[in-house]
């Protein structure tokens, strides 16, 4: 039986390392004192990607078909949109 298509531990290990790395990048950007709207939105994008990885692979939504494939993704997109709007408007 081939479980690779639905679940792979090796892949999850990689994803764990990637999310850790992305977190350190976010932290370093902040420590370096970089700022500006582009940087801020970039950080948000990194966070959304991390969230997507958690949903798709850790929570196991990637292979799901139909309605339940989407809640976490839609949640992230909607939230990303709202936060982006608020931060863009705050600049102007």
């Amino acid at each position: 039986m081939d479980r690779e298509s639905t679940f792979s531990l090796r892949r999850c290990t990689w994803i764990w390392l990637i999310i850790m790395a992305l977190t350190l990048i976010t932290y370093s950007i902040n420590r370096l004192g970089l700022s500006g709207l582009e940087i801020t939105l970039g950080i948000l994008l990194l966070a959304l990607i991390k969230g997507h990885l958690i949903g798709a692979y850790f929570m196991g939504l990637n292979p799901v078909q139909g309605f339940w494939r989407w809640p976490v993704t839609i949640w992230l997109l909607l939230l990303g949109l709202l936060i982006t709007i608020a931060f863009v408007l705050a600049e102007g």
């Binding site: 999310i19 977190t23 976010t26 932290y27 950007i29 902040n30 700022s35 801020t40 950080i43 948000l44 990194l46 966070a47 959304l48 991390k50 969230g51 958690i54 992230l76 939230l79 936060i83 931060f87």
Partner: peptide
């Protein structure tokens, strides 16, 4: 938390 961390601690 992965959203909370950048939003509240980092994004400015």
């Amino acid at each position: 938390w992965l959203i909370l961390f950048p939003l509240v601690y980092v994004m400015h």
